[in-house]
Nucleic acid binder design. Structure first.
Lengths: 210, 210
DNA sequence: TCAAGTCTGTAACTTTTGTTACTGCCAGGT
DNA sequence: ACCTGGCAGTAACAAAAGTTACAGACTTGA
């Protein structure tokens, strides 16, 4: 575990901290599509992403979903962190976007390391910062952009996260992530295809140029 | 200054910290409507709210605005804090909702106190936490609610912040805060009035029951 | 008291988004 | 080869939100 940990976090954490993380953390893995953490769960540890990607979703009482943002290697979820320190239930759902490896660090250590390691303190602050700014971006897209622009952004983000111009996804799945209906997504995707920006296939979508 | 500071923060900060804040912080005040911090400003200190209320706005390139949330006595702005620690420009605009008093604390102290005072560390974490959860709520309203529900929430929030059932506000101002048009707001407000929930007057709005 | 500016109400229309319904297509299992 | 279920395309319509235009009311100040 120490090796993978060093690969992903070696350039920000000192030796001693990496050591302690690998001693107290629990290595976990999740298959693509697996729910790593769900709304209402009590949270007693925070994740450090080693490999793969996780998508963070919000849900309302009627069961409508909305994709908030993706996490990648080297990220942690500030919302989870926040829940952790506040000892409250999870406000979000985390689903593995690809097969994923991560370390769960128990809550007790988080506070302790905050006082002992400057690099950890910085990491925590930077996590809050990047998550806040991702939330701001999410708000921007919701408040200022139409569905066609939101869809474009979604496709770009997803291609980036999966490091591929070919996305394995159904229209219905996109509709869930953007909290709209399948018909709307089909309509807009078809428009994008006519504009020569993408190619549509069953369960599959190729990004040409955006 | 120490007196006002103790009134607002005495129950969370220890004596020594209150002392240091009052020594290094700068007491400021802003009139209702005054811009306290604007998008693109460099931030070198963070605010601690003593009295009044501040509204935090987001703006896109076309100049469209959106109200993110309000700050009250005892609050600080985690977005500012985040900018501060990251040494970046402000992503948001802060406008005095009422006449407001606050203390600006220089960036250098923020990190220092984080290591020296547990109460400060908790305060910073709790600020991040409450701001994250307010951002989540903002996202919820944008993603899951129609304009009529958003308007209702806005009126409720504003009544709460101003501790009054009578709001001094024009339809146009509401439209700016919710990033929609004046006509839409007039339409929906009229509907609320017909439902007996509010009373409309020029520059003025009375909340009966929501 | 009159003029100018601001605010609200409303109508008529457009655009965007959401809904319902139906079609054909494809893949996997029997 | 056939059946079944999931997926995508499309039409037709409904609802929500945005736009344009205009009228009347109030407010302020000359």
């Amino acid at each position: 575990m120490l090796q993978e940990l060093t690969d992903a976090y070696g350039f920000i954490f000192e030796e001693k901290l990496l050591q302690e993380i690998s001693e107290t953390g629990v290595l976990k893995s999740a298959r693509e599509g697996e729910i790593i953490m769900d709304i209402g769960n009590y949270i007693t540890s925070m994740p450090l992403l080693l490999e793969g990607a996780i998508k963070i979703l919000r849900e309302d009482k009627e069961g409508n979903e909305l994709l908030l943002y993706f996490l990648e290697r080297g990220d942690t979820c500030a919302l989870t962190l926040s829940c952790c320190l506040g000892q409250t239930k999870s406000e979000i759902r985390a689903v593995a976007e690809k097969d994923t490896q991560y370390i769960m660090v128990p809550i007790a250590k988080i506070e302790e390391w905050t006082t002992r390691f400057k690099s950890w303190r910085n990491f925590v602050f930077e996590s809050y910062q990047s998550r806040l700014s991702e939330m701001l971006e999410t708000i921007d897209t919701l408040a200022f952009m139409n569905m066609d622009q939101r869809l474009l952004r979604y496709i770009q983000d997803k291609a980036k996260i999966n490091q591929s111009q070919e996305l394995q996804v159904t229209h219905q799945q996109i509709a869930y992530d953007l909290n709209t209906s399948r018909v709307v997504i089909s309509r807009l995707l078809k428009k994008l295809e006519l504009e020569g920006k993408i190619l549509l296939q069953r369960n599959h979508l190729v990004v040409y140029d955006l």
